[in-house]
């Protein structure tokens, strides 16, 4: 019964989603909104499990004085401190907003900014012209970069921009859509396997 009950619930939910997505009466009854609400409520409950997991791991790290245990202490103080602050003054309160705008947002932007350097180093590796394919990639990338950057038009007239747009609109968009179609068919096959109870990995263990 450990696997059968979730499988039955999954199959019924899948049929309800088909009914809600395709049929007028399902849409009229708001079946998808109901399913979304159930998911959101399950999610809210699951948030508690995440907090418990984080707490157990970091309390154990502090207790056992693991390497860098001070960071675990900082994490716990930040997590519970911000939660308590939010409960006292809501997340729109002056101190809570200040922390969000002046600590969280800059930290987030800092990590995001690292991408610029990582893209450069990854591109360097990908564009090394060691094979015919890598050479085609390198030439295409140079044309597209020059085509979308102002310096390209200055150096090579507007023709480079037209060539870059052609590459983006036809060569790139065509391939992109091929991957999208293939991915969608794969997602449909996975959904059918789950609905029919063939795919059970998410219920625990390998297939």
């Amino acid at each position: 019964m450990r696997k059968e009950v979730p499988m039955i619930i999954t199959a019924l939910s899948a049929l309800a989603a088909v009914f809600g997505n395709f049929f007028w009466l399902g849409h009229h009854w708001g079946v998808m909104d109901l399913l979304d609400n159930w998911f959101n409520r399950s999610f809210a409950f699951a948030a508690l499990i995440g907090v418990i997991n984080l707490s157990i791991i970091h309390i154990n790290a502090i207790r056992r004085r693991k390497e860098n245990w001070v960071y675990s202490l900082i994490l716990l103080i930040a997590m519970y401190g911000y939660a308590i602050l939010g409960l006292i003054q809501t997340t729109d309160g002056p101190q809570a907003s200040w922390i969000y705008n002046n600590v969280l947002t800059p930290l987030d932007s800092t990590v995001f900014a690292l991408l610029a350097f990582y893209i450069t180093s990854a591109s360097y590796r990908a564009f090394r012209a060691r094979t015919v394919e890598a050479t085609v990639l390198l030439v295409t990338a140079i044309v597209v970069m020059l085509g979308v950057a102002p310096i390209g038009a200055v150096l090579f007239t507007d023709k480079i921009s037209s060539l870059a747009q052609w590459l983006l609109n036809y060569a790139n968009a065509g391939t992109y859509r091929a991957f999208s179609i293939a991915g969608s068919l794969g997602a449909m096959a996975t959904a059918l396997r789950i609905t029919l109870g063939l795919e059970r990995a998410h219920l625990g263990g390998a297939q």
């Binding site: 991915g183 794969g186 996975t190």
Partner: peptide, 22 residues
């Protein structure tokens, strides 16, 4: 790439029924 991740569990299971969906 793309659909290969969806085919993975069927491919790894090597069960004919699962491979049929691929």
């Amino acid at each position: 790439i793309a659909e290969e991740i969806y085919a993975a569990s069927a491919y790894l299971s090597k069960e004919p029924v699962m491979l049929g969906t691929v």
